[in-house]
Each structure stands twice: as C-alpha cells, then as structure tokens.
Design a protein around this nucleic acid. Structure first.
Lengths: 182, 182
DNA sequence: ACAGCCATGTAACTCGTTACATGATTAC
DNA sequence: GTAATCATGTAACGAGTTACATGGCTGT
C-alpha cells in the first residue's frame, strides 16, 4: 500500500494520464496547460519531468521507450493510488491569491483612476482566459454525456466558465462603482 | 528610488501598515488572518517576522521599541514604495488552485457519491469562510463611505462576499447535477 | 539552410511551511 | 498556580520557478 503522500501537483499530473493514452513529458505539459491551468497550476516544464521521475520511482507510472521520446502510462498501482487519494484524503482549501483584490485593499494610496485602470487591465486577461476555456469546452462536445470519457472534464469546464464569467461581472461592476462616486 | 522588487507578500504586509497604526509582528499576523487571508494568504507567523526584518532592512518600516514587544510603523519610503508598486508594476495573474475542481476532473475514478460528498464537505468550509468575512465586513461599517478610512477594505470585503457566495451557489448546483443523473 | 517546434534534463534559487525553542504577561 | 495568549525568533525542508544547456525532427 505504501501511504507516503505525494504533493497534490503530483496527483494532478498523474490524473491527466487516466484518460486512456500515454504521453511524453512534453505532451503532458501541454495537457496541463490546456486543462489544469484553469483550476490548479501550469507547472514548469522542468517540474513535469521531475514529477514524472518521482512517479516512476513510486511505480505509479511506467516509462515506455528509451532516450528520445519516452512516453509514460499510468500503472494499476497509479490508478489505485489516485482512488485512495480521492477517497481517503480530506479535500484541502483552495489557494486563492488575487493581486487585484490585494491592490484594491490599499487603493487609498493612489488615484481612483489608477485602481480602475488596474481592474480593466485584469478584465482583458480574463477575457482571454474565458476564450481559451470556452475553446477547450467545445472540444469536449460529443463525449460529455454521463458515463462518457470526458463527462467530468466537461463538468469542470462548465463550472470554470461560470466561475470566470461571474468574476468578470463582479469586477466590471466594481470598476464602475469606483469610477462613479469619487 | 532603488527598484529592487520585493515578493508580493512583502508588499501585502506593508500595505496592512498603511491604516494609521503601528503593530507588533504578532498583531500584524492577526490582521493578515482577518483580511489578507481571503484574497491573498495567511502567512505563517515565522514569515511575518522575516518579512518585517526584510522591510526594516530596506527602510520601508521602522521598528519602535526594543526586545520584547517591538512595534513597526511604515515609513515615508515605505508608502512611496507601495505607491510606485501600485502604479508601475503590472498586475499579475491570480493564483487559483482549487482542489475541488482538480478532484472533479478525475471524478470518473470513483463513485459519484464520493465526489458529491467531497463537494458538500467543501461547501461547509465555504460557509465558515463566508460567515467570517461577513463579520469582518460588518466591523467596517461606519467608516466605509467614499473618502473614509476603510472605504477600500469595505469594497474588497463586499466583492469577496459576492465572490464566495457565487462559488457557493455554483458548487451546490454542481453537486445536485451530479447527484441526479447517474 | 534555417526557423520553429519537439524533447529532456540540471542547477541555483526563492518563497513559504512546519517543527522547534523560549519566555513574559494576563485571566481565572 | 496554571492555562491561554502574547511575543519573537531559528532551522530544516519542500515545492516550484527561472535560467541554462543540449540536440533531434519537421516544414518551407
């Protein structure tokens, strides 16, 4: 059984290998950038490789092929470890570090226009993220019904779209509120 | 000018000293736990002390009193550094690591009931956070009008209440959706 | 031929955490 | 008197980043 806990990012990357294919480190990084990035992290390339090394050591993934272009497949032990993690480990708190909120907190130090501009700048990047996530979500159509392969990824994507959309609305209201009364 | 950038958490703690009082490290930690925690981090006690040491080195805060019970006040250079930071440094992206979303992504590995229970567990802690934040927000009433001392902290708190409230709604919808069809 | 992507790693470093250690003051 | 809170740090460690280094393969 070996109950030595891995960092969550390790489980996250392992989880990306549960969709029926085997990937190189490079491809795994791309998948993380497409999906994980919106709810967890987009790990650095170098971290992907070091996590794969660790997962291999624990026999949770097994490398296929040598030298150039090694692909990794999840093992039975890997699936088991993920299941155990999902069932037995209490879900932790989200890490939510929002620089816009932080700067707003000390908005009294600068002109209101500065704060408004800062919020608007952030809204632009939010739009980009929303567009990227919408694209991902669209790409899952066709196998997103209950029981199908991308059911859960679709649920997460839908939730993310709602989440980021709501944030967009809240923040643009906030900018308007600051703009008007001062 | 000395454009040596500090980590954002350093600016965050420095920002908490812009509300007209001087605090001990211990008190600063308490203030961070009350406010910063919802949008940034609740730094460990030990980090508060090390950040204060760094801020002191850079003359952004100045210690008052010796040995036991040293309080720290922001300096003019400190206020200036914060202003420069707010005006000249591009606002970064939020760090958003959500274990619920991550686990949902690989929900196909476990029974739907497990996932639903996980979400429900998280909803409980969300309620606690909402209650704590609501309390903070109430405590600011009376000096939250435009131009008053806690104007911006109130705006952030209101935004936070909306944010966490929306998350609450989204997640409980999600739990219901998983529960029903399967 | 050359640019861009595919592919894999190492080294140094920083942020932030946990564990440890100490002791004074305050409330009951 | 004794438990809780106030108060301040040090040390070891781990997660994750950036910078660096290397080279093959593919399309034009």
């Amino acid at each position: 059984m070996s109950r030595q806990d891995l960092p969550v990012t390790s489980y996250a990357l392992l989880g990306l290998l549960t969709f029926g294919d085997e990937l190189t480190g490079y491809e795994l990084k791309q998948r993380a950038d497409r999906t994980l990035r919106f709810y967890w992290v987009a790990p650095a390339m170098s971290q992907v490789y070091s996590e794969l090394a660790r997962l291999t050591e624990h026999d949770l993934v097994s490398p296929v092929g040598e030298g150039r272009r090694t692909t990794y497949a999840i093992t039975d032990a890997g699936r088991e470890a993920l299941r155990t993690w999902l069932e037995d480990t209490p879900v932790g708190s989200p890490v939510f570090k929002h620089p816009v909120a932080l700067r707003l907190l000390i908005g009294h130090l600068v002109a209101p226009e500065t704060t408004v501009a800062m919020i608007r700048e952030h809204l632009d990047t939010l739009d980009d993220q929303l567009a990227a996530l919408a694209e991902v979500r669209e790409s899952l159509r066709g196998s997103d019904a209950p029981g199908e392969a991308f059911r859960y990824p679709s649920l997460v994507a839908d939730w993310g779209l709602e989440h980021y959309g709501q944030e967009r609305r809240s923040l643009s209201d906030l900018a308007r509120r600051i703009e008007q009364q001062n």
